[in-house]
Design a protein around this nucleic acid. Structure first.
Length: 307
DNA sequence: AAGACGAAAGTGGTTGA
DNA sequence: TCAACAACTTTCGTCTT
């Protein structure tokens, strides 16, 4: 067993309210839903060989690692289609009909119920989405775990799989502080971003997951590279945002808007000017909002600013 | 002509009675 | 549950360079 009893607090939000779920073999935080530990049943390879004296030659008991990305976590049994028994000899004609029946039921048991079939599709969609958006596998794992929980809680019925999968990815994205917006995610699936946003909130409420409000800093490197800004400008943008956060000018404002305004200001300071239009295009924030934000920032931070 | 500006009306979410 | 509200968007006419 690999229960790590040293973890008593959630590394994400410091809550001590950790729930152990032996059905799923995982512990997660009641506050934010962060999975502290999963696969509590030890999945590590049994690389021991009892037949040869201590020399590890036979590793036949080693299987693929279990994963949230597979609907059965890679643990279900399959019955081979060949009419052979395990030693390779043919199965007698007497037993063959029985084999057929077993296979049939095995196949049905594996995929027949609504939840499993739903999961298969959903997990595929999650993986597809994550690879399209260059998100790491660990994020796909987390999104999958969230989706599983939503499915267990009967929160999927009546919603499209794509929308729910997108929402799960967005939650994981928020938790791991990667710079993807609802729009980015919705675009890949060609679905309504508003629906995704709605489902995202619904799932967070239903599963009692809290995500940290995204800092404007999260988006800096991404927007900078899309606008071809150099390191000097990028650093200045970070400085401005950090100052704004210190002075609590960012609460209740859209993080992208703050980032956009900081880009606009820093651009003039380092002579890497970008127009409001250009910034608006990559940040998906309107020029009006950029104007309002940069004026407020420049004034509050006493940054001399001339266009 | 391009970019910036700002007023005015509209949208969707949050909050508090 | 509903109205008030803050933030943000859309639209559009005007000003500046």
């Amino acid at each position: 067993m690999s229960v790590d009893t040293t973890v008593v607090k959630c590394p994400e939000c410091n809550s001590r309210d950790l729930i152990y779920d032996d059905k799923r073999g995982e512990r997660h935080c009641a506050e934010c839903g962060m999975v502290i530990e999963n696969r509590i049943i030890d999945q590590s390879a049994e690389w021991r060989d009892y037949t040869s004296d201590g020399v590890r030659t036979d590793r036949s008991r080693v299987g693929a690692p279990s994963s949230n990305l597979l609907h059965d976590k890679g643990l279900s049994t399959t019955i081979d289609w060949q009419n052979r028994d395990y030693s390779g000899s043919a199965i007698s004609s007497k037993n063959r009909p029985q084999m057929y029946r077993m296979r049939k039921w095995q196949q049905r048991a594996k995929t027949t119920n609504y939840k499993d079939r739903n999961l298969i599709t959903a997990l595929n969609r999650i993986q597809y989405l994550c690879s399209k958006l260059d998100l790491p596998k660990s994020l796909a794992e987390r999104a999958s775990a969230i989706y599983r929980r939503a499915l267990e809680a009967n929160m999927i019925r009546g919603r499209s799989i794509d929308t729910t999968a997108a929402a799960a990815v967005f939650i994981a994205n928020q938790q791991m502080q990667t710079a993807r917006t609802v729009d980015d995610i919705a675009k890949e699936f060609k679905i309504n971003p508003k629906e995704v946003g709605r489902t995202y909130r619904f799932m967070k409420r239903g599963l009692k997951i809290r995500t940290p409000p995204p800092s404007p800093l999260v988006y800096v490197s991404r927007f900078c590279s899309e606008l071809h800004l150099n390191k000097k400008t990028e650093n200045r943008i970070r400085e401005i945002i950090e100052l704004a956060e210190e002075r609590e000018l960012t609460y209740g404002k859209s993080p992208c808007g703050i980032t956009a305004a900081a880009i606009y200001i820093a651009g003039y300071e380092t002579e890497q000017v970008r127009t409001q239009r250009e910034i608006s295009d990559v940040t998906n924030v309107t020029e009006v909002t950029i104007r309002n934000r940069y004026k407020q920032l420049a004034q509050s931070l006493a940054i001399e600013f001339e266009v």
